[in-house]
Nucleic acid binder design. Structure first.
Lengths: 215, 215
DNA sequence: GACTGTGAAGCCATTCACAGCT
DNA sequence: AGCTGTGAATGGCTTCACAGTC
Protein backbone atom coordinates (compact mmCIF):
# COMPACT_ATOMS: atom_id res chain seq x y z
CA UNK A 1 0.00 0.00 0.00
CA UNK A 2 0.90 3.64 -0.43
CA UNK A 3 2.63 5.05 2.61
CA UNK A 4 1.01 8.40 2.36
CA UNK A 5 3.22 10.76 4.23
CA UNK A 6 1.24 13.87 5.09
CA UNK A 7 3.11 16.92 6.39
CA UNK A 8 1.98 18.05 9.79
CA UNK A 9 1.55 21.54 8.37
CA UNK A 10 -1.07 20.07 6.05
CA UNK A 11 -3.03 18.67 8.99
CA UNK A 12 -2.95 22.01 10.76
CA UNK A 13 -4.30 23.73 7.67
CA UNK A 14 -6.87 21.02 7.13
CA UNK A 15 -8.24 21.70 10.56
CA UNK A 16 -8.48 25.38 9.71
CA UNK A 17 -10.16 24.69 6.37
CA UNK A 18 -12.60 22.41 8.12
CA UNK A 19 -13.71 25.07 10.53
CA UNK A 20 -13.86 27.70 7.80
CA UNK A 21 -16.07 25.43 5.71
CA UNK A 22 -18.37 24.99 8.66
CA UNK A 23 -18.74 28.76 8.89
CA UNK A 24 -19.44 28.98 5.16
CA UNK A 25 -21.99 26.21 5.35
CA UNK A 26 -23.79 27.96 8.19
CA UNK A 27 -23.94 31.06 5.98
CA UNK A 28 -25.53 29.00 3.24
CA UNK A 29 -22.62 29.03 0.79
CA UNK A 30 -22.93 26.08 -1.61
CA UNK A 31 -19.80 26.13 -3.78
CA UNK A 32 -16.32 27.49 -3.24
CA UNK A 33 -13.03 27.58 -5.17
CA UNK A 34 -9.54 26.96 -3.87
CA UNK A 35 -8.85 30.69 -4.36
CA UNK A 36 -11.70 31.65 -2.06
CA UNK A 37 -10.69 29.15 0.61
CA UNK A 38 -7.14 30.41 0.34
CA UNK A 39 -8.23 34.02 0.80
CA UNK A 40 -10.44 33.07 3.70
CA UNK A 41 -7.76 31.39 5.72
CA UNK A 42 -4.62 33.14 4.48
CA UNK A 43 -2.72 30.57 2.42
CA UNK A 44 -2.06 30.09 -1.30
CA UNK A 45 -4.63 28.42 -3.58
CA UNK A 46 -2.07 25.87 -4.77
CA UNK A 47 -1.47 24.97 -1.14
CA UNK A 48 -5.16 24.33 -0.59
CA UNK A 49 -5.38 22.04 -3.60
CA UNK A 50 -2.18 20.21 -2.71
CA UNK A 51 -3.33 19.68 0.88
CA UNK A 52 -6.63 18.20 -0.24
CA UNK A 53 -4.92 16.09 -2.90
CA UNK A 54 -3.23 14.04 -0.19
CA UNK A 55 -6.61 12.56 0.61
CA UNK A 56 -8.53 12.38 -2.64
CA UNK A 57 -10.25 14.36 -5.37
CA UNK A 58 -13.00 16.36 -3.78
CA UNK A 59 -13.61 19.08 -6.35
CA UNK A 60 -15.04 19.45 -9.82
CA UNK A 61 -12.81 20.96 -12.50
CA UNK A 62 -14.15 24.18 -13.84
CA UNK A 63 -16.49 24.50 -10.85
CA UNK A 64 -14.86 24.20 -7.44
CA UNK A 65 -15.82 22.35 -4.27
CA UNK A 66 -19.19 21.71 -2.73
CA UNK A 67 -18.95 23.33 0.69
CA UNK A 68 -20.98 20.83 2.66
CA UNK A 69 -19.35 17.81 1.05
CA UNK A 70 -15.86 19.15 1.57
CA UNK A 71 -16.73 20.00 5.16
CA UNK A 72 -17.74 16.40 5.74
CA UNK A 73 -14.65 15.05 4.03
CA UNK A 74 -12.30 17.20 6.09
CA UNK A 75 -14.12 16.29 9.28
CA UNK A 76 -13.79 12.65 8.44
CA UNK A 77 -10.09 12.95 7.64
CA UNK A 78 -9.53 14.59 11.01
CA UNK A 79 -11.52 11.86 12.70
CA UNK A 80 -14.18 14.22 13.95
CA UNK A 81 -17.17 12.19 12.87
CA UNK A 82 -17.77 10.98 16.36
CA UNK A 83 -17.41 12.97 19.58
CA UNK A 84 -14.23 12.79 21.62
CA UNK A 85 -14.46 12.72 25.40
CA UNK A 86 -11.53 14.33 27.24
CA UNK A 87 -10.17 14.31 30.74
CA UNK A 88 -8.40 17.33 32.11
CA UNK A 89 -5.94 17.48 34.98
CA UNK A 90 -5.43 20.79 36.77
CA UNK A 91 -8.35 22.75 38.15
CA UNK A 92 -6.60 26.10 38.22
CA UNK A 93 -7.67 29.07 36.17
CA UNK A 94 -6.37 27.63 32.93
CA UNK A 95 -7.95 24.23 33.56
CA UNK A 96 -11.21 25.89 34.41
CA UNK A 97 -11.12 27.96 31.23
CA UNK A 98 -10.31 24.96 29.07
CA UNK A 99 -12.98 22.78 30.63
CA UNK A 100 -15.63 25.34 29.73
CA UNK A 101 -14.16 26.37 26.38
CA UNK A 102 -16.90 26.53 23.76
CA UNK A 103 -14.45 26.09 20.90
CA UNK A 104 -13.91 22.49 22.00
CA UNK A 105 -17.60 21.65 22.14
CA UNK A 106 -18.20 23.18 18.73
CA UNK A 107 -15.72 20.73 17.26
CA UNK A 108 -17.03 17.64 19.03
CA UNK A 109 -14.82 17.57 22.10
CA UNK A 110 -16.24 17.37 25.60
CA UNK A 111 -14.47 17.35 28.92
CA UNK A 112 -15.96 14.47 30.93
CA UNK A 113 -13.66 14.62 33.94
CA UNK A 114 -11.61 17.21 35.79
CA UNK A 115 -8.94 16.17 38.27
CA UNK A 116 -6.72 17.85 40.78
CA UNK A 117 -4.85 16.65 43.82
CA UNK A 118 -5.36 19.92 45.67
CA UNK A 119 -7.82 19.06 48.45
CA UNK A 120 -9.21 22.58 48.48
CA UNK A 121 -10.26 22.15 44.84
CA UNK A 122 -11.71 18.65 44.99
CA UNK A 123 -15.49 18.72 45.08
CA UNK A 124 -15.58 22.24 43.67
CA UNK A 125 -18.16 22.51 40.92
CA UNK A 126 -17.16 23.58 37.45
CA UNK A 127 -20.42 24.24 35.67
CA UNK A 128 -22.13 20.84 35.99
CA UNK A 129 -19.03 18.85 36.85
CA UNK A 130 -17.09 18.29 40.03
CA UNK A 131 -13.35 18.31 40.44
CA UNK A 132 -12.30 14.77 41.36
CA UNK A 133 -9.18 13.34 42.96
CA UNK A 134 -6.77 11.59 40.57
CA UNK A 135 -7.81 8.20 41.97
CA UNK A 136 -11.11 8.56 40.14
CA UNK A 137 -9.44 8.79 36.77
CA UNK A 138 -9.54 5.07 35.84
CA UNK A 139 -13.26 4.92 36.51
CA UNK A 140 -14.11 7.93 34.36
CA UNK A 141 -11.75 6.94 31.56
CA UNK A 142 -13.33 3.51 31.41
CA UNK A 143 -16.88 4.80 31.62
CA UNK A 144 -16.51 7.22 28.70
CA UNK A 145 -13.79 5.35 26.80
CA UNK A 146 -11.51 8.39 26.96
CA UNK A 147 -8.37 8.42 24.82
CA UNK A 148 -7.16 12.01 25.21
CA UNK A 149 -5.98 13.91 28.27
CA UNK A 150 -5.25 17.59 28.75
CA UNK A 151 -2.55 18.71 31.17
CA UNK A 152 -3.12 22.10 32.75
CA UNK A 153 -0.96 21.86 35.86
CA UNK A 154 2.24 23.76 36.76
CA UNK A 155 5.42 22.64 34.98
CA UNK A 156 6.84 20.76 37.93
CA UNK A 157 3.81 18.48 38.21
CA UNK A 158 3.33 17.86 34.50
CA UNK A 159 5.56 14.81 34.02
CA UNK A 160 3.92 13.03 36.91
CA UNK A 161 0.49 13.77 35.48
CA UNK A 162 1.55 12.53 32.05
CA UNK A 163 2.82 9.29 33.58
CA UNK A 164 -0.46 8.81 35.40
CA UNK A 165 -2.48 9.44 32.25
CA UNK A 166 -0.44 6.90 30.33
CA UNK A 167 -0.72 4.37 33.14
CA UNK A 168 -4.48 4.82 32.95
CA UNK A 169 -4.55 4.00 29.26
CA UNK A 170 -4.73 7.40 27.57
CA UNK A 171 -2.96 7.46 24.21
CA UNK A 172 -2.89 11.16 23.40
CA UNK A 173 -1.95 14.18 25.50
CA UNK A 174 -2.34 17.88 24.98
CA UNK A 175 0.13 19.56 27.30
CA UNK A 176 -0.19 23.18 28.39
CA UNK A 177 2.60 23.05 30.96
CA UNK A 178 5.77 24.83 29.84
CA UNK A 179 8.03 21.83 30.03
CA UNK A 180 9.22 19.03 27.70
CA UNK A 181 7.58 15.76 28.64
CA UNK A 182 9.02 12.30 28.24
CA UNK A 183 6.49 9.85 26.88
CA UNK A 184 6.73 6.47 25.14
CA UNK A 185 6.77 6.45 21.36
CA UNK A 186 3.20 5.22 21.01
CA UNK A 187 1.76 8.20 22.86
CA UNK A 188 0.64 11.18 20.78
CA UNK A 189 1.83 14.35 22.43
CA UNK A 190 1.35 17.98 21.55
CA UNK A 191 2.52 20.96 23.50
CA UNK A 192 0.73 24.27 23.55
CA UNK A 193 3.25 26.71 24.82
CA UNK A 194 1.66 30.03 25.57
CA UNK A 195 4.84 31.93 26.41
CA UNK A 196 6.64 30.67 23.32
CA UNK A 197 4.00 32.29 21.18
CA UNK A 198 4.53 35.64 22.85
CA UNK A 199 8.29 35.28 22.50
CA UNK A 200 8.02 34.81 18.76
CA UNK A 201 6.24 38.14 18.70
CA UNK A 202 8.90 39.86 20.79
CA UNK A 203 11.62 38.35 18.63
CA UNK A 204 9.96 39.64 15.48
CA UNK A 205 9.48 43.08 16.99
CA UNK A 206 13.18 43.12 17.79
CA UNK A 207 14.16 42.10 14.27
CA UNK A 208 12.50 45.16 12.82
CA UNK A 209 15.37 47.42 13.66
CA UNK A 210 17.61 45.27 11.44
CA UNK A 211 15.27 45.06 8.49
CA UNK A 212 14.21 47.92 6.26
CA UNK A 213 17.75 48.81 5.44
CA UNK A 214 18.73 48.57 1.82
CA UNK A 215 16.06 46.27 0.52
CA UNK B 1 24.74 43.72 5.64
CA UNK B 2 23.86 40.04 5.98
CA UNK B 3 20.15 39.47 5.60
CA UNK B 4 20.05 36.77 8.19
CA UNK B 5 17.01 34.73 7.48
CA UNK B 6 16.13 32.74 10.57
CA UNK B 7 13.56 29.96 10.26
CA UNK B 8 10.55 30.41 12.49
CA UNK B 9 11.09 26.87 13.75
CA UNK B 10 14.44 28.06 15.07
CA UNK B 11 12.81 30.86 17.05
CA UNK B 12 10.31 28.48 18.57
CA UNK B 13 13.11 26.16 19.66
CA UNK B 14 15.19 29.06 20.90
CA UNK B 15 12.36 30.02 23.21
CA UNK B 16 12.26 26.48 24.51
CA UNK B 17 16.04 26.36 24.99
CA UNK B 18 15.87 29.65 26.82
CA UNK B 19 13.38 28.39 29.32
CA UNK B 20 15.22 25.12 29.74
CA UNK B 21 18.46 26.97 30.44
CA UNK B 22 16.68 29.01 33.08
CA UNK B 23 15.62 25.80 34.79
CA UNK B 24 19.18 24.45 34.61
CA UNK B 25 20.59 27.66 35.99
CA UNK B 26 18.19 27.55 38.89
CA UNK B 27 19.41 24.03 39.60
CA UNK B 28 22.97 25.29 39.65
CA UNK B 29 24.18 23.65 36.45
CA UNK B 30 27.24 25.53 35.12
CA UNK B 31 28.11 23.92 31.79
CA UNK B 32 26.09 21.99 29.24
CA UNK B 33 26.66 20.38 25.86
CA UNK B 34 24.47 20.50 22.79
CA UNK B 35 23.72 16.83 23.35
CA UNK B 36 22.36 17.50 26.81
CA UNK B 37 20.26 20.44 25.67
CA UNK B 38 18.96 18.29 22.82
CA UNK B 39 17.97 15.49 25.19
CA UNK B 40 16.37 17.94 27.57
CA UNK B 41 14.04 19.48 25.01
CA UNK B 42 13.65 16.67 22.50
CA UNK B 43 15.54 17.77 19.40
CA UNK B 44 18.81 16.70 17.74
CA UNK B 45 22.17 18.05 18.93
CA UNK B 46 23.04 19.27 15.44
CA UNK B 47 19.80 21.21 15.45
CA UNK B 48 20.71 22.93 18.69
CA UNK B 49 24.10 23.98 17.36
CA UNK B 50 22.69 25.13 14.04
CA UNK B 51 19.98 27.15 15.74
CA UNK B 52 22.48 28.94 17.94
CA UNK B 53 24.87 29.46 15.01
CA UNK B 54 22.37 31.83 13.42
CA UNK B 55 23.18 34.30 16.14
CA UNK B 56 26.82 33.82 17.01
CA UNK B 57 29.32 31.51 18.62
CA UNK B 58 28.33 30.98 22.19
CA UNK B 59 30.14 27.78 23.09
CA UNK B 60 33.65 26.56 23.66
CA UNK B 61 34.91 23.67 21.55
CA UNK B 62 35.75 20.66 23.60
CA UNK B 63 33.77 22.03 26.54
CA UNK B 64 30.22 23.10 25.78
CA UNK B 65 28.18 26.14 26.74
CA UNK B 66 28.10 28.12 29.94
CA UNK B 67 24.51 27.80 31.10
CA UNK B 68 24.08 31.28 32.52
CA UNK B 69 25.77 33.00 29.61
CA UNK B 70 23.75 31.09 27.05
CA UNK B 71 20.60 31.82 29.00
CA UNK B 72 21.35 35.51 28.78
CA UNK B 73 22.19 35.34 25.09
CA UNK B 74 18.97 33.53 24.21
CA UNK B 75 16.94 35.95 26.32
CA UNK B 76 18.51 38.84 24.53
CA UNK B 77 17.92 37.34 21.09
CA UNK B 78 14.26 36.91 21.98
CA UNK B 79 14.14 40.49 23.23
CA UNK B 80 13.30 39.49 26.75
CA UNK B 81 15.82 41.68 28.49
CA UNK B 82 13.17 44.20 29.42
CA UNK B 83 9.64 43.44 30.58
CA UNK B 84 6.75 43.50 28.11
CA UNK B 85 3.44 44.98 29.20
CA UNK B 86 0.37 43.43 27.57
CA UNK B 87 -3.25 44.34 27.15
CA UNK B 88 -5.88 41.65 26.96
CA UNK B 89 -9.35 41.90 25.49
CA UNK B 90 -12.00 39.46 26.61
CA UNK B 91 -12.76 38.93 30.28
CA UNK B 92 -14.32 35.50 29.90
CA UNK B 93 -12.87 32.37 31.43
CA UNK B 94 -10.00 32.19 28.97
CA UNK B 95 -9.15 35.87 29.33
CA UNK B 96 -9.24 35.52 33.09
CA UNK B 97 -6.93 32.50 32.98
CA UNK B 98 -4.48 34.21 30.67
CA UNK B 99 -4.39 37.41 32.68
CA UNK B 100 -3.36 35.49 35.77
CA UNK B 101 -1.12 32.98 33.98
CA UNK B 102 2.14 32.59 35.89
CA UNK B 103 4.03 31.37 32.85
CA UNK B 104 3.78 34.85 31.36
CA UNK B 105 5.13 36.59 34.43
CA UNK B 106 8.02 34.15 34.69
CA UNK B 107 9.13 35.22 31.24
CA UNK B 108 8.79 38.95 31.75
CA UNK B 109 5.28 39.53 30.46
CA UNK B 110 2.66 41.32 32.51
CA UNK B 111 -0.94 42.07 31.69
CA UNK B 112 -1.49 45.75 32.50
CA UNK B 113 -5.04 46.10 31.18
CA UNK B 114 -8.08 43.89 30.69
CA UNK B 115 -10.96 45.02 28.52
CA UNK B 116 -14.44 43.83 27.71
CA UNK B 117 -17.51 45.50 26.32
CA UNK B 118 -19.85 43.36 28.37
CA UNK B 119 -21.30 45.75 30.96
CA UNK B 120 -21.74 42.94 33.48
CA UNK B 121 -17.99 42.32 33.38
CA UNK B 122 -16.73 45.89 33.51
CA UNK B 123 -15.52 46.84 36.96
CA UNK B 124 -15.16 43.22 37.96
CA UNK B 125 -11.88 42.64 39.72
CA UNK B 126 -9.35 40.20 38.38
CA UNK B 127 -6.79 39.82 41.12
CA UNK B 128 -5.63 43.42 41.55
CA UNK B 129 -6.93 44.73 38.25
CA UNK B 130 -10.33 45.86 37.05
CA UNK B 131 -11.97 45.03 33.78
CA UNK B 132 -12.24 48.27 31.79
CA UNK B 133 -14.39 49.31 28.85
CA UNK B 134 -12.59 49.40 25.48
CA UNK B 135 -12.61 53.21 25.56
CA UNK B 136 -9.94 53.08 28.22
CA UNK B 137 -7.51 51.26 25.97
CA UNK B 138 -5.67 54.28 24.53
CA UNK B 139 -4.96 55.63 28.00
CA UNK B 140 -3.53 52.38 29.33
CA UNK B 141 -1.54 51.65 26.17
CA UNK B 142 0.04 55.10 26.36
CA UNK B 143 0.71 54.93 30.07
CA UNK B 144 2.59 51.63 29.88
CA UNK B 145 3.85 51.91 26.31
CA UNK B 146 2.15 48.66 25.37
CA UNK B 147 3.01 47.05 22.03
CA UNK B 148 1.30 43.65 22.30
CA UNK B 149 -2.34 42.73 22.63
CA UNK B 150 -4.00 39.41 23.40
CA UNK B 151 -7.38 38.57 21.93
CA UNK B 152 -9.51 36.23 24.04
CA UNK B 153 -12.99 37.00 22.73
CA UNK B 154 -15.39 34.79 20.74
CA UNK B 155 -14.59 34.32 17.04
CA UNK B 156 -17.24 36.70 15.79
CA UNK B 157 -15.87 39.65 17.77
CA UNK B 158 -12.19 39.00 17.12
CA UNK B 159 -11.72 40.99 13.90
CA UNK B 160 -13.31 44.05 15.45
CA UNK B 161 -11.03 43.76 18.47
CA UNK B 162 -7.98 43.39 16.24
CA UNK B 163 -8.95 46.50 14.31
CA UNK B 164 -9.35 48.43 17.55
CA UNK B 165 -6.00 47.26 18.84
CA UNK B 166 -4.28 48.33 15.64
CA UNK B 167 -6.06 51.68 15.66
CA UNK B 168 -4.73 52.18 19.16
CA UNK B 169 -1.17 51.61 18.06
CA UNK B 170 -0.47 48.02 19.03
CA UNK B 171 1.96 46.31 16.65
CA UNK B 172 1.71 42.67 17.71
CA UNK B 173 -1.30 40.47 18.43
CA UNK B 174 -1.66 37.05 19.98
CA UNK B 175 -5.02 35.73 18.89
CA UNK B 176 -6.84 32.95 20.73
CA UNK B 177 -10.09 33.27 18.77
CA UNK B 178 -10.62 30.44 16.28
CA UNK B 179 -10.78 32.63 13.19
CA UNK B 180 -8.37 34.00 10.57
CA UNK B 181 -7.79 37.69 11.14
CA UNK B 182 -7.03 40.28 8.51
CA UNK B 183 -4.30 42.66 9.60
CA UNK B 184 -1.93 45.01 7.77
CA UNK B 185 1.47 43.69 6.83
CA UNK B 186 3.34 45.59 9.52
CA UNK B 187 1.37 43.94 12.33
CA UNK B 188 2.86 40.82 13.91
CA UNK B 189 0.15 38.24 14.36
CA UNK B 190 0.16 34.79 15.85
CA UNK B 191 -2.77 32.51 16.32
CA UNK B 192 -3.07 30.01 19.12
CA UNK B 193 -5.72 27.63 18.01
CA UNK B 194 -6.70 25.32 20.81
CA UNK B 195 -9.04 23.08 18.82
CA UNK B 196 -6.55 22.65 16.00
CA UNK B 197 -4.12 21.13 18.45
CA UNK B 198 -6.68 18.56 19.56
CA UNK B 199 -7.55 17.79 15.96
CA UNK B 200 -3.96 16.96 15.13
CA UNK B 201 -4.15 14.41 17.92
CA UNK B 202 -7.38 12.92 16.62
CA UNK B 203 -5.97 12.80 13.10
CA UNK B 204 -2.90 10.96 14.31
CA UNK B 205 -4.97 8.53 16.33
CA UNK B 206 -6.95 7.81 13.19
CA UNK B 207 -3.84 7.23 11.09
CA UNK B 208 -2.75 4.42 13.33
CA UNK B 209 -5.04 1.90 11.74
CA UNK B 210 -3.23 2.48 8.44
CA UNK B 211 0.30 2.27 9.75
CA UNK B 212 2.05 -0.79 11.15
CA UNK B 213 1.46 -2.82 8.01
CA UNK B 214 4.51 -4.19 6.30
CA UNK B 215 7.19 -1.82 7.47
C1' DG C 1 39.18 13.00 23.82
C1' DA C 2 35.46 16.00 23.77
C1' DC C 3 32.57 19.13 21.81
C1' DT C 4 31.50 23.22 18.85
C1' DG C 5 30.77 25.44 14.35
C1' DT C 6 29.71 24.80 9.57
C1' DG C 7 29.73 23.63 4.50
C1' DA C 8 27.58 20.05 1.91
C1' DA C 9 24.11 16.68 1.25
C1' DG C 10 19.71 15.09 1.86
C1' DC C 11 15.09 15.62 2.67
C1' DC C 12 10.73 17.74 2.90
C1' DA C 13 7.30 21.32 1.83
C1' DT C 14 5.67 24.87 -1.16
C1' DT C 15 5.03 27.01 -5.49
C1' DC C 16 4.76 26.83 -10.41
C1' DA C 17 2.65 25.87 -14.54
C1' DC C 18 -0.12 23.34 -17.25
C1' DA C 19 -2.80 19.20 -18.73
C1' DG C 20 -7.39 17.65 -18.00
C1' DC C 21 -12.14 18.05 -17.12
C1' DT C 22 -16.79 20.57 -17.01
C1' DA D 1 -13.60 30.05 -19.85
C1' DG D 2 -12.95 28.41 -15.34
C1' DC D 3 -11.08 25.68 -11.96
C1' DT D 4 -9.09 21.30 -10.22
C1' DG D 5 -5.33 17.94 -9.84
C1' DT D 6 -0.48 17.09 -10.28
C1' DG D 7 4.40 16.38 -12.00
C1' DA D 8 8.36 19.28 -11.98
C1' DA D 9 10.95 22.99 -10.14
C1' DT D 10 12.11 25.60 -6.42
C1' DG D 11 13.12 26.88 -1.92
C1' DG D 12 14.02 25.98 2.86
C1' DC D 13 15.06 23.24 6.89
C1' DT D 14 17.45 19.43 8.95
C1' DT D 15 20.96 16.09 9.22
C1' DC D 16 25.54 14.61 8.22
C1' DA D 17 30.23 14.57 8.80
C1' DC D 18 34.29 16.63 9.79
C1' DA D 19 37.61 20.51 10.45
C1' DG D 20 38.73 23.40 14.18
C1' DT D 21 39.52 24.35 19.00
C1' DC D 22 40.18 23.49 23.87
Amino acid sequence: MKTLRVPEATIIRLSVYSRYLEQLDRKGVITISSVEIADGVGVSPAQVRKDLAYFGEFGTRGVGYNVRDLMHYTSKILNLNEPWPLVLVGAGNLGFALSTYKGFNNRGFSVVGIFDNDLTKIGKKIVDMEVSPPEKMPEIIAKHNVKIGIIAVPAKAAQEVADLMIKNGLVAILNFAPVSLNVPEHIELRNVDLSVNLEILTFNLGMRQFESRGK
